[in-house]
Design a protein around this nucleic acid. Structure first.
Lengths: 340, 340
DNA sequence: CTGTTAGCGCATTCAT
DNA sequence: ATGAATGCGCTAACAG
């Protein structure tokens, strides 16, 4: 392995000072044209590349953002990451990824590593089990802005991008009711998730809007494991007043529920209809897709989170000390039909 | 924002030297127990955290690996990334991600950025359009090992982890023939992909094994766009000797082909059967899944690539200059049935 | 057992 | 228009 060329090496060859080389390389106006040219020529010959680790160290800027997600093999998060990476890459930023695997401790460790690596900012969708929000506040000390997306802590003073589920849910319920359904079941996620609360609220509101009274029997929940998904569905099917339509927390729940329904020899979208929240781009593959999905646009959410983060970067460059404005962008979910 | 504590600050408070603090923090044996304790105590009080950027700079080790993939929203790659991240995280390494978006130029830019960031190693699955392999060789100059996985350049002197498609393909063909099929079509990917060549070879071998002569009409290819997937399928359906079974390059091709077949009112897995190479965990969602998938285990491939990379790290720590051994791990694909 | 010194590569301030 | 000197935070060689 050859020696990696530095600014010094160039200086030595040209018998000029390192600072001149540095300035020349940056096109500093005070450096003579000839010198600049000569420097650039030698730099090229030597295949000089600035050592970013040195620059980061000096500049206290790493041109890196950290992204922490629960699980990269979940399409919802990987497409969000895809959006973030694309955005960051356009801004010449690099992306660190970490997966919490729904483990609050691991999440904390990742956050600390990223802090120590001095990432310029963090985008995170928190794990199901995150209850300690102190970690997030600590980042402020290091002046590392943090933007939450989709799954966020229940706090006021945070930046986030999220998707309001209400519109999609209302559209879904309107749609189902228009199709004649009155008994609309709901398989929700674990109650500690903000997302579950939001879905539940919207569900109730949707029914209220149509003067349908809330039937708690129709509302079941699952920790999102295949077992509990099936169990929840079984509970709904065992009702004397079986639901004719079911809204599920996400596509995976829908899949498991549909699977179960089939073993009962019921016909999906005829005996019983489904609408799910979209976590995966899977329905294009299916015969028995749900009637519709409530789309949450993970990629867009990721991009929006990136926009917020980079806006924070820009603001802080302008020297404003601490932005008291919290960027909280919420756009609407929307129902997408799969079956005519 | 408060001042971030440094080793100096601790030294000042304790009126000792910075190097003593550094050593104490690392549990250096030559430092007295009392001093060590006092240092750790103050470090704790100040919430001291080492500045990794300084450490990286000094150590010429970033504890970071770069992962470059064609597209993160493709489940095949995101699950590979998931495996890599998990492995790296166990080794206390961080992961940079970049997506080439099948663009060779972007890929090259990402490689250069990562090189400048002095990542300790790179894992990459190259883009469809990568033809210039010089970039990879350049990394050697910076002593940055590179491990390819799945999609690799056609070179001898590289490290890679891959999945041998042969076994899965042979199993698939055995299976189909046992089911009575003799006319087995094949929708392959673009010929510039090594993966296409491998599939084709295995396909031919499988047929040969059963003394079925190769019929070039049954072999079509697609650039993997939905349009060309449909076009390829149409070509097969227009044959006078229509295939009764079709093997597709991947799940997306299968999806498009199946979609088309349905519009022709043919019954999948009865009029015509499918086996595809698995790129997505989607078949659990389907009624009309292919008969089977030839699994390539992206997560395992990712983990294996990580193992190779970390093995290279270990080797280089032992001071061996340049390992002349190329780690090329190939494990077998395997057919997984979806339909009894 | 602990302190002093030097230096990683670069950008920058202050001279000239 | 250029050079010399300085320091970012940390580690390590050398000295006591």
């Amino acid at each position: 392995m050859e020696k990696i060329p530095t600014i010094k090496e160039i200086a030595k060859r040209l018998k000029i000072s390192a600072s001149t080389v540095s300035r020349a390389l940056h096109g500093h106006p005070s450096i003579g044209l000839v010198t600049t040219m000569r420097v650039k020529k030698v730099a090229n010959e030597l295949n000089y590349e600035p050592n970013q680790t040195a620059i980061f160290f000096k500049r206290r800027k790493t041109l890196t953002i950290g992204v922490i997600l629960p699980d990269l093999s979940d399409a919802f998060f990987s497409s969000a990451l895809s959006g973030i990476e694309e955005y960051a890459s356009k801004k010449n930023y690099n992306v660190f990824v970490g997966q919490s695997m729904e483990n609050a401790d691991k999440e904390k460790r990742i956050l600390e590593t990223m802090k120590n690596h001095r990432v310029d900012g963090i985008i995170i969708s928190i794990s199901k089990n995150t209850t300690d929000y102190e970690v997030f506040k600590q980042l402020k000390r290091y002046n590392i802005p943090i933007v939450f997306f989709d799954r966020r802590p229940d706090m006021e003073d945070i930046h986030y991008s999220a998707c309001n589920l209400q519109l999609g849910m209302l559209q879904a319920i309107d749609h189902l009711i228009q199709k004649g359904h009155r008994n609309i079941g709901f398989i929700n996620g674990p109650s500690q998730l903000l997302a579950s609360k939001e879905r539940l609220d919207a569900y109730k509101e949707g029914l209220n809007k149509h003067q349908i009274s809330i039937n708690t029997d129709l509302m079941v929940s699952s920790d999102l494991s295949a077992e509990q998904n099936g169990y929840a569905m079984r509970k709904l099917l065992s009702l004397t007043q079986k639901p004719t339509a079911i809204i599920t927390f996400n596509d995976y729940v829908a899949r498991d529920a549909i699977k179960l329904v089939k073993t009962f020899n019921m016909v999906v979208n005829s005996d019983i209809s489904f609408v799910s929240f979209a976590n995966a781009p899977i329905w294009s593959f299916m015969d028995t897709a749900p009637l519709a999905s409530i789309e949450q646009f993970p990629q867009k959410q990721g991009i929006k989170a990136s926009e917020i983060l980079f806006k924070l970067f820009d603001d802080s460059i302008e020297g404003m000390p601490l932005d008291p404005v919290f960027h909280q962008v919420v756009f609407d979910s929307s129902m997408v039909s799969h079956v005519a």
